[in-house]
Amino acid sequence: MLRVDGLSHRFGNRAVLSDLSFALDKGGFAFLTGPSGSGKTTLLRILHGSLPLQTGRALVAGHDLAALRPSKLYQLRRDVSVVFQDFKILPERTVVENVALPLTVRGTPKARIERRVASILTALRLTELAHRPCAELAGGEQQRVAIARAVVAGPRLMLADEPTGNLDWELSLRLLDILRQFSAHGTAILMATHNRALVAAAPDAMVITLGGGEADPGGFDVGQAAAPDAAAEATP
């Protein structure tokens, strides 16, 4: 589902990612951890086609990023969804309209959109908010809308960039549980977080730990479960 080989990325003279390799199978769940500036968001942006692949190879949901033309980027994004820390939802539109967006842009028939959206809203306990503008929702509710939008079209891979960054501990755990359920249904999930307690809450998940900002070829423990230190960082 996701295979990265020797991926490196630089911003000017600063190496952000260096010789990174890992793989994630269908239905797999992996945490992407590391301190601020370690390249978590950069990696997710590369995998989603928002940044160009500079060095190495990345096969993402069957798309070879090195060979992907900009005009075909939408094909990658129909197979790979993203949940952003800042949600990136349209505040003036309703929950239903936001969640339906990935299906709408695919030209899915209206009846099928309604069925699929209703099902996802039920799963994420958003049914009662369905017709409220997202601007009126609390942060946790908006986050669930973002997740609903990310899974509604059945992506093969979901990238989540610090999705618990604005949530309290209880909501973070609930979000993790929701993501694990989608993972169990076949969607591979790569979730960036610096919350070690959250990583500790899913001990069976793969952990990809990125190093600091400067070039550090040895700064990655790819595919190795990091030792979560809940006491050090978690503030549930």
Binding site: Y74, Q75, R77, K88, L90, L101, P102, V105, R106
Partner: peptide, 15 residues
Amino acid sequence: EELEILRLVGATPWF
């Protein structure tokens, strides 16, 4: 911002 979100969810340039 709206256009960016549309692109992120897989909208074609035509869409």
